[in-house]
């Protein structure tokens, strides 16, 4: 088959909602789009461990500490599922990590904001994981099999993350004046960065059209963002916190909450590496990788030695 026929067959399968598997023929653009997106997603999971790691030793109770540890461990696992999915496309793990550590690869801009108080653990779980879930649920049906399957596992685990975050805020909101203020302050700081997690508006999203056409993406950035606002507003009311958007109001005719203008200049700045924490996050990632080198080497040396011993004892027998 020539490339035109192959492309035609490929699109026929996409339209019929058939999954594309790693060994199937796929257009190079589809492969590259997926590698970029899955790798960014994987990087986001493991960089996302860093802002929360600060609070493992500062959690107010043992219950909170155990939950936070479990959540961070989940994120390491999510990173692993996603790196494996990316690797099925023919890119190796070390290349992906090198690209993260050199600053060449991107990850979600949200993790370049600082975590200033314990209430931030609540706001991250509620808003950041809430936004992530909305992005991730449609990906369970994405056209590339390994990515879709990884997302099913991720989504199953993610709902506990959001609930534990919401519970943290609920506890603070039912506490002292000072605690309520702390919760509100965290919501004020995390609201807009969470809104930005859905990416540029539809007219400015350069990858969206192709991703929608090939079934990687099922809903546009703005659709998902609207869903997030509609879902979050009533949850904020239960907590008794306000969302820091003076233009937020319910639109009777559409049945949606209308929201104010997003500061895209800030968004672009953070993406380009100038957010409050870009440098420190990458520094910590690189340090963790470099300091772990001896463990990786030791495990390899031990495995090699054991394999050698095994083959020697087989020869004797």
């Amino acid at each position: 088959m020539n490339i035109v026929d192959l492309e035609h067959e490929f699109m026929k399968r996409i339209k019929a909602d058939q999954k594309i598997e790693p060994k199937d023929w796929m257009p190079e653009k589809y492969r590259q789009t997926l590698i970029r997106q899955i790798a960014q997603h994987a990087h986001s999971e493991i960089v996302g461990m860093l802002p929360e790691a600060n609070y493992i030793s500062r959690a107010p109770t043992l219950r909170r500490k155990a939950a936070l540890l479990a959540k961070i461990q989940d994120e390491a696992g999510h990173g692993l599922y996603l790196y494996c999915a990316a690797e099925t496309l023919g890119v190796d793990r070390d290349t992906l990590l090198d690209e993260l550590h050199s600053g060449k690869a991107k990850y979600s801009s949200i993790f370049n904001y600082p975590t200033l108080t314990w209430a931030d653990m609540g706001a991250i779980g509620w808003l950041v994981d809430g936004a992530a879930i909305l992005n991730q649920v449609p990906l369970c049906k994405c056209s590339f099999g390994p990515y879709a399957r990884a997302m099913v596992r991720v989504c199953k685990e993610e709902s506990f993350h959001q609930r534990q975050g919401y519970e943290i805020l609920l506890t603070l909101c039912n506490g002292s004046e000072e605690q309520k203020k702390m919760a509100q302050d965290a919501v004020n700081r995390w609201w807009w960065p969470s809104m930005m997690m859905f990416g540029p508006s539809d007219e400015n999203s350069k990858h969206s059209a192709y991703s929608m056409e090939t079934g990687i993406k099922k809903f546009s950035n703005d659709e998902l963002r609207q869903r997030f606002v509609d879902q979050t507003k009533p949850q904020a009311d239960i907590l008794g916190v306000t969302l820091p958007d003076k233009d937020l109001k319910f639109d009777e005719s559409s049945g949606h909450w209308k929201y104010g203008e997003i500061d895209w200049e800030e968004f672009n700045n953070v993406i380009q590496g100038n957010g409050p924490c870009n440098k420190i996050r990458l520094k910590h990632r690189r340090e963790a990788w470099e300091k772990g080198a001896w463990v990786r080497d030791a495990a390899s040396a031990y495995a090699a030695k054991k394999a050698l011993k095994n083959s020697e004892s087989k020869q004797v027998a």
């Binding site: 599922y81 494996c84 990884a150 495990a299 390899s300 031990y302 495995a303 054991k306």
Partner: peptide, 11 residues
Amino acid sequence: VGSLHAADAQM
């Protein structure tokens, strides 16, 4: 269920 990298079978 999935895959992972490891130095040997035990790991």
